[in-house]
């Protein structure tokens, strides 16, 4: 009971944030290159983020760790809700089984194909391998730590992208989904599969943005995004171990002499970690 009271502050804050966010509701913002979808879960994240800023001194580190702990537990509920949307649509998903598998290659290769050259062009060294071999969520961190060690350059690169993902991944992916979705060149189902990216919060945010653009297809969007996400979760680890990581390392030795900066000066500051 004592524990519940101690945690009540966090839960109460979440309740208030949820009410405020849901009252504001969905908005769209025209920014020239496209329309940005704004919706409750984004406000919730930003409001929560502001409250937790160390300079505001409203939450201490222990409470923030608690919030992260609760986050891990309630992801379970989210996954179940997604799964109960997938269940009734299983025939629909089997129907697009092969495209679903093929697009998974896009999720895997997309990080490496543009990530690695850009990382090398701006002067990263071996950090680039860890940073670009995957989207660097928790399981990927474990893989790189096992192979290179957590404090290796490769490990620091992966950790850097992981931190960025935690801090602004969901919000960035939501913006990305609304801008690219607004172009109108991709079918909503393609966008939904693409939204099945990375962590649950990234997927939720990307799918949320797409549902603002295609409100009538809301249910379908979550089905395809959820299926892509689950598939990535089921096979992703093996793909990372047996393909992505060795492939990125090979590409690195090949591309680094071509694109890498010769200066030896950029070393420790590559990741800042």
């Amino acid at each position: 009971m004592n524990n519940i009271l101690k945690n009540a502050k966090i839960h109460f804050l979440v309740l208030i944030i949820v009410i405020i966010s849901e009252i504001i509701g969905t908005k769209t913002l025209n920014v020239g290159i496209g329309v940005i979808a704004l919706f409750p879960m984004l406000y919730a994240m930003v409001l929560g983020g502001i409250i937790s800023l160390p300079s505001i001194k409203f939450l201490n580190t222990k409470e923030m760790n608690k919030a992260a702990h609760f986050l891990g537990i309630c992801f379970m509920l989210f996954v179940i809700k997604v799964a109960t949307a997938i269940g009734p649509s299983l025939p629909k998903i089997f129907d697009v089984g092969i495209p679903l598998l093929i697009q998974e290659a896009g999720h895997v290769l997309g990080t490496i194909i543009i990530g690695l050259p850009v990382a090398l062009l701006i002067g990263m060294k071996r950090e680039a391998i860890g940073a670009t071999y995957s989207i660097d969520r928790e399981p990927n961190l474990a893989i790189i730590a096992e192979k290179y060690g957590a404090d290796s350059p490769e490990g620091r690169g992966a950790l850097g992208v992981y931190i960025c993902g935690t801090v602004f991944g969901a919000i960035y992916v939501a913006f990305l989904a609304s801008i690219i979705g607004g172009w109108g060149i991709f079918h909503p189902i393609s966008l939904a599969m693409a939204a099945g990216v990375g962590s649950n919060s990234m997927m939720a945010a990307a799918t949320g943005a797409l549902s603002v653009i295609y409100p009538d297809l809301k249910d379908d969007l979550i089905v395809y995004a959820g299926a892509a996400n689950l598939m990535a979760g089921a096979i992703g680890i093996y793909v990372c171990i047996f393909f992505s990581l060795p492939f990125t390392a090979r590409m690195y030795t090949w591309l680094e002499p071509l694109l890498g900066r010769k200066k030896a000066a950029v070393k420790k500051e590559e990741t800042g970690l």
């Binding site: 309740l15 919730a44 160390p54 919030a67 931190i163 969901a170 939720a204 990741t271």
Partner: peptide, 25 residues
Amino acid sequence: ATPILAYAGLSFGKDIGVFKKLSWR
């Protein structure tokens, strides 16, 4: 998803220190 991202937001402060130290690269 809204409460989940609210929890994510509330845990944001613990990462901001490390985040600020990251290089722009």
